[in-house]
Computed example of a mutant assay.
Amino acid sequence: MKRMTVKSAALVTGFLAATAPVMAAQSTANLAVTATVADTCAITATTALAFATIDGGSVTDESVNGILTVVCTSAKTGVTVDMAGGNNASGGQRRMSDGGTAFLPYNIHSDSGHASEVAIDGEIYNGDVSAAVPLLINVYGQIPSGSYTAGVYTDTILVTLTY
């Protein structure tokens, strides 16, 4: 009987050794992650100055609002935004063209009451910009009173951000 117990113990020990989980080896490392955000600013014309259809046979005083957006990756002081005269300016007057010989005058203002006109190559903004917070600059366009020739008129104004 003693012999059978020894055999049973050997058999159980062999069975446990065969079914015991094998432990996997592990090794760890750290992966470095880096990035550099450039110190920049950008300006976009978020909302264009799009005037409604004007009745060319009557006097008009059409006004619209546009938006410029400035975003900088770090806080900036003394930021300026200047507006050129457009492709068709003449004698200090911004003008849209119908692509031919007709022109439609317009003015740019920094306020909705049209008290502060932005001259050709003049500043529409001078101040500070916070880091990563969009600065919205309202631009107000106005077509002076007058009767104008029928047509589709366009212009493009170069806007310059200095920081």
Results as ranks from 00 to 15, higher is better:
residue 145 S to C: 01
residue 101 T to A: 06
residue 92 G to C: 07
residue 120 I to H: 10
residue 124 I to Q: 01
residue 77 T to E: 15
residue 95 R to Y: 02
residue 127 G to M: 13
residue 2 K to F: 08
residue 48 A to Q: 13
residue 70 V to D: 14
residue 46 T to G: 06
residue 84 A to I: 02
residue 151 G to A: 01
residue 137 I to V: 10
residue 143 I to V: 10
residue 105 P to W: 04
residue 115 A to G: 12
residue 122 G to K: 02
residue 82 D to L: 13
residue 84 A to P: 00
residue 144 P to M: 06
residue 79 V to H: 13
residue 48 A to H: 07
residue 102 A to L: 02
residue 124 I to W: 07
residue 6 V to G: 03
residue 11 L to Q: 11
residue 30 N to A: 13
residue 159 V to N: 02
residue 16 L to C: 01
residue 14 G to L: 14
residue 72 C to E: 00
residue 59 V to N: 14
residue 18 A to P: 00
residue 150 A to N: 15
residue 6 V to S: 02
residue 149 T to N: 04
residue 4 M to H: 10
residue 81 V to Y: 00
residue 82 D to M: 10
residue 4 M to N: 11
residue 17 A to K: 03
residue 161 L to D: 10
residue 149 T to P: 07
residue 53 T to P: 05
residue 10 A to K: 10
residue 44 T to R: 08
residue 42 A to G: 12
residue 19 T to R: 02
residue 21 P to S: 05
residue 69 T to P: 05
residue 130 S to D: 15
residue 4 M to D: 14
residue 134 P to K: 05
residue 14 G to H: 01
residue 20 A to I: 13
residue 3 R to P: 05
residue 143 I to N: 08
residue 158 L to V: 12
residue 133 V to K: 14
residue 43 I to C: 04
residue 115 A to L: 12
residue 27 S to W: 12
residue 22 V to N: 10
residue 113 G to C: 11
residue 79 V to A: 15
residue 30 N to V: 15
residue 20 A to N: 11
residue 99 G to N: 00
residue 12 V to R: 06
residue 107 N to G: 09
residue 79 V to I: 05
residue 139 V to G: 02
residue 43 I to Q: 14
residue 98 D to K: 03
residue 98 D to A: 04
residue 134 P to M: 08
residue 42 A to R: 11
residue 141 G to A: 07
